[in-house]
Structures are given as structure tokens and as C-alpha cells.
Nucleic acid binder design. Structure first.
Lengths: 343, 343
DNA sequence: GACGCTGTTGGTAGCGCTGTCAATTGGCCA
DNA sequence: TGGCCAATTGACAGCGCTACCAACAGCGTC
């Protein structure tokens, strides 16, 4: 006997079946598709399972069925507040469903992403959520070869691998900059940190609008690959002022930077919005509370997480949504920091 | 033949073994304990695996070995910045190890926690990380019955289930309030949100110090079960001022509330620190950048995450740390918001 | 009464891997 | 040369569950 004796350890399906007086396969069916059983057996299995405290062995199930009920989530960062909200949406939407979330961190590396994708591939997830649309060629092929539905989140673009939920960072950024121009601002700075693909697209939106308005000047732009932080906002703003002392507005690629700019302005006694207008991005909680209140582009991060899981589950269960690309849009929240000069 | 034909789908261990010219079990060993193989076989299996792009099937492995390489993490919230940092530490520390993180959200419910614990139990994790020390009696028993090492994080206390990493919220809060008293402040308010067990202990620390100093007054305390937010800080502060108009200091149970108080003070033109001293909790990035800079109690959240995983892995691999309870301490960061009145 | 249908149940044979133990090899000593 | 030990390798069975098919009951139809 190569293994130790039986019937120690947790309760197995066979034991439930025996107690219920049915075959193991019938008991198995009870847990996967109770409607297929007659009422009497259903009740018997149910009470037997409860009596023994049976919990199915997911590994055995996965091995036998060649499927899992795991939704893999690839997200580039845990540091960033934004992904926090997305993850929260994802977890909330998965709750109550049969699916488990398996989250991994790509650290903003498309190669790490590819590696993790390969790992998921071997685990046959029921569905996959990946961030953004900038995957490597190999990653895209890998994903296309996988049998499960996939949602790309955070942004939308051409050629979805499968499904998409997001919004246009380009449009959102354009709207913010257009708003600043409409206020009569001419020297509108751009402050960027991390510079991941989505931030790049915000920069592109800025560039387009500024060039179209004949206001473009490279001295107005300051970016860094450094991860974002409130303190960084202040530092960057100081540097930007050095490059462009006549700045009359700043568009920050996120709210942390914007808050840092606000504090730096308080420190330097720069009047907001009189001397400088500020617009952030994401509309975190504190933007509406700051003094002065800070304008921002509201993005639906939590909803993005929720929607992606909802779509995924629908697709997994064969009810593929007809709308494969969902644009959750954005909303420009105009507050005191970008109010017209003489209201 | 009950199953579809073989050799479709991903590469299996057998195929790697065949290509390498060894038995499956030898190939298996290569992936778990390469040192046990002779150099020649090791190289042959390695190149065969690489050539075929073999990725082990974790479900089959878990089923056969009756173990997994999953570390389960039970955390009460994703909304709270604090757990963000902890999670980051956890993921960072797990990277490069063989262990996978499986994170679940208890939503601040000890019953949800118990339920999730039961779920983990059936999955035989290699280790478990649970938040805090306020588990139900059943949860504690469940954990004690599990064969894997367990770390309780976020706080330390008597009777660890197994191991612990955290700090004393009571002491940290006491230190903050003592500091405010040392400034000569007498009407020190307490602002609390969420009021989870750790926040409760901060309240207890506050109460002790205030009573000992003969400064206790119930009108100085305002708490709410509502989840925390910057905007909430302002609202609560307004209410607290209603209860105690002669307030000369506030201790906030977290930094979001403190920032909200700062903004509200700016709105009401209350001079900080002259009229009101503020101390927050956690020392998030923005506290050192705000105007004025905000005092806070620095807690080592990231390190807590890291350390818990490190200890867990050591214990899993049989090198149980002799120090089972690790106090990561805290540091009182005194800044402008609680500077002495005439410096 | 034979036939086919649907709805329910069970038998068999694995899913891909590893624990156990036995077998083999080589090296070293007496 | 024989014997012993450690290092290395392999055979076997089975982890707990489910896919696949077969079987069977109950019913209505002709």
C-alpha cells in the first residue's frame, strides 16, 4: 500500500455519497448542477454533506474536469490608488459568484506580464483580466490561444484580444486641456509621473490640443518615470516653474501630483486659480475637499473592475455580451482650482 | 475510452521525461529538488522542459502531494490605504519564492472571516496570514487545527495562534496623545472612523492618557462606524467643534481624517498649530508635504507585509523563527501641525 | 405490446502528478 | 575480492474528483 490508510483527513465526496445512499457521481452532480437530481436525492445529499461538513477538493475537481473557477487578474501595480479601486470592483463583483480571483502584479513590465500569462495558461483559468492594450506580440498570441474569455481593462483601443472595458485617456486628457484653454490660459503645463502607456496617451491628448491651439511649447512639459506621489508633485512643479516661469495652468496626470502642486503653491503663495489653474486626473475623494477644491477628470475605476468581472462571468457561462468593447467614459469635474478668473 | 485522445493540450511531465530519456518520477524530482539528480540527468531534463515549454500542472501536484504552495491572506478591506501597503509588502516578499498569494477580503466581518478560513482549510494552504487578533472562538480553533503555520498581522497581543507581526496600537495612540499634552494642549479631541478593533485600541490608548492627565471629557470624542475618507474628516471635525468649541488639538485615527481636518480648518480660517494642533496616524506620503506639514504616527505597514511572508516561508520550510511575535513598533513624526506654540 | 422518448442514475477509467519503497549503481573499506 | 553504505533511479498505486457512456425507469404513442 503506497499511501497511508484511508479515511483520515477531510471528508471526501465518496463518504458523503455513502451516507446519502447514492453513487459518488450523483453526489458530485449535486454540487455542480443540483437541478439534475430528483428532489429526494437532492435532499439526501444536501443533508449528508452538511452533516459531515464536506468541502469539495478544488484541486481534484480542476484536475478531473480540466477547468477551474479562477479568474486571473494581471495588474501593474499595488502602489497606485487607481488599481486599488479597480481591484475592489473586481473582488466585489466576484463575491457571491462561484469564481475565485487570482491576482498577480506585473510591475509595469510587459515581460513580467508575458511570464505571468504563461503561468496562468498552465492553470487553465476560467477567465482573465489584463491591464491595458500594450501587450507583447507573444502575450497577445498566448491570450488568443487560451480557451477562456479575456477582458482588457483601463482603456479601450482598436483590436481587442477579446473584450474591453475602459475609456479613452486621450479624449479625457484632451477634454481637460481644452477646458483650461477655454478659461483663457495659454501657458498650460503638463506634469507626468510613471509614464505608463495610459499616461503616455494622456500626454498625446495634451499635445494634440496644445498644438491645435498654437500653444505648444516643450518647456511646458515635465515628465518622469518615477512612481507617483504627493511629494513628487511639489518637486516636479518646482522644476516646471524653473522651465516655464510664466506658467498659468497645470494639468497633472493624476490627483496625487495635483495635491502636491496645491501644497507647493500654498508654500510659494501662488494664488489658485488666479495665478495658476490646476486640473488633476481620477477624481479621488480628496479633490472635492481640498482648499480650494481641485478640478479633476473623474474616471470610473470601481465600475471598471465590476463590469469586467460581470462581462467575464457572462462570457464564461456562455452568455457572451454583444457589446465586447465597453466605454465607461469620464467626466470633467470643474471646481475652484480651474474656475474662470473673474467669476 | 472515456476521455478524448491523449497528447493534445499542454505538455505533461511524462513527455518531458520521455524526451529527456528518464522516468517521469525523475523528471518530477527535477522540479522539486534538482540537487537530488545527477548532473547529467539534471541538464537533460532541464533542456527537455525548456524545449517543450513545460509548465507543471499545479492542481495535479496539489492533489498528489496533498499540499499546495499557496499562502492565504485574509484582509478586511481593499478600500483602506493601509492594507494596500501591507498587501504590497506581502506580494513583494512572495515574489521569487515558490509561493503564490491567495488574497481574500473579510469586509471587517469576523463571520465572513470564519467562513473564508473554512474555505482555506479545505484547500490545505502552505501558510496563512490573518489580520488582527479578534477572531471568533471557532476561527481560532479552526486555525489551531490547521497543519500550516499562521501569522497574525497588524497588531500584537497575548496568546498568538501561532506567529505575530505588528505593533501596539494602544501604545502608538498613547504616545501621540502624550505628545499633544506635552505641548500644553488640554482640550484634545479624538476623531475616529470605521472603529475596527485596532481603531478601538487607539481609542483606549487615548482614554487612558487623557484620564490619567485629568483631561478626559466625553464631549471631546467623536467616532463613527462609517468607512474613512478625507471628506469625512472635515464633516466629523465640524461636528466635533459643535460638541467642544474650545478644542485645541485633535488626534485623528488616520491620515485621511487628518487631511480632512486640515482642509476644514483652512475653510474656517482656524490657524494650525496656533489654534489647533493635529496629529494623524499611519504617516502616509502626503503628511510631510501638506501645508502646514502634518504630524503623524508612522507605522511600518509595508514591512509588516514583508515580514509576515518571510516568517511564514521560514516556518513552512521548517526553519521556524525563534521570535514568534515581532513588534515592528511605530514612530511619532512631529511636524508643524503639532509644533510648540511659540517656537 | 413494441417503440421511442426524456429524465435520472451509475460504472468505468482516467485527469497529471507524487509518496512510498525497492532496485540499482558506484565508491570505499577491510 | 567481498561487503557495506550512500547516492541515484524507477515501479507502482492512487490523490479526489468528473467526463463519458450505458442503463434503467417511467411515460406516451401507435
Amino acid at each position: 500500500m503506497p499511501r497511508k490508510s484511508k479515511s483520515i483527513g477531510p471528508i471526501r465526496l465518496t463518504e458523503v455519497a455513502k451516507l446519502a445512499g447514492v453513487s459518488p457521481i450523483t453526489a458530485s452532480r449535486f454540487f455542480r448542477n443540483p437541478e439534475a437530481l430528483s428532489l429526494s436525492k437532492r435532499e439526501r445529499v444536501e443533508s449528508a454533506a452538511k452533516e459531515l461538513g464536506y468541502v469539495p477538493n478544488l484541486h481534484a475537481r480542476a484536475l478531473a474536469s480540466q477547468r477551474t473557477e479562477v479568474i486571473g487578474v494581471l495588474i501593474p501595480s499595488l502602489t497606485n490608488n487607481v488599481f486599488n479601486d479597480v481591484l475592489r470592483g473586481i473582488y466585489d463583483a466576484s463575491e457571491g459568484s462561484r469564481y475565485t480571483i487570482q491576482f498577480v502584479n506585473t510591475r509595469y513590465s510587459i515581460f513580467q506580464e508575458e511570464k505571468l500569462l504563461r503561468l496562468f495558461q498552465a492553470q487553465k483559468p476560467a477567465g482573465l483580466i489584463v491591464t491595458g492594450i500594450n501587450q507583447t506580440e507573444d502575450s497577445r498570441n498566448l491570450m488568443k490561444g487560451m480557451a477562456c474569455p479575456i477582458v482588457q481593462i483601463m482603456e479601450i483601443g482598436p483590436e481587442p484580444v477579446d473584450m474591453m472595458v475602459g475609456f479613452s485617456h486621450y479624449d479625457a486628457s484632451s477634454a481637460a486641456v481644452t477646458h483650461l484653454i477655454s478659461l483663457g490660459r495659454k501657458r498650460i503645463g503638463f506634469l507626468g509621473a510613471r509614464m505608463d502607456p495610459r499616461v503616455q496617451r494622456r500626454l498625446e491628448g495634451y499635445l494634440k490640443v496644445m498644438k491645435d491651439a498654437g500653444l505648444f511649447d516643450p518647456a511646458l512639459i515635465l515628465t518622469t518615470p518615477t512612481p507617483t506621489a504627493v511629494s513628487l508633485g511639489g518637486t516636479l512643479f518646482g522644476d516646471l516653474l524653473g522651465q516655464a516661469p510664466d506658467l498659468d495652468a497645470v494639468f497633472c496626470v493624476n490627483d496625487d501630483l495635483a495635491l502636491g502642486v496645491l501644497f507647493e503653491c500654498q508654500r510659494r503663495a501662488i494664488a489658485i486659480p488666479e495665478k495658476l489653474a490646476i486640473v488633476g486626473f481620477n477624481d479621488l475623494d480628496f479633490m472635492a475637499t481640498a482648499v480650494p477644491t481641485l478640478s479633476s477628470v473623474r474616471t470610473n475605476r470601481y465600475e471598471m473592475g465590476r463590469e469586467s468581472v460581470t462581462m467575464l462571468i457572462e462570457a464564461i457561462e456562455g452568455r457572451r455580451p454583444e457589446k465586447c468593447v465597453v466605454d465607461l467614459g469620464f467626466e470633467l469635474m470643474i471646481r475652484q482650482s480651474s474656475a474662470p478668473r473673474r467669476a
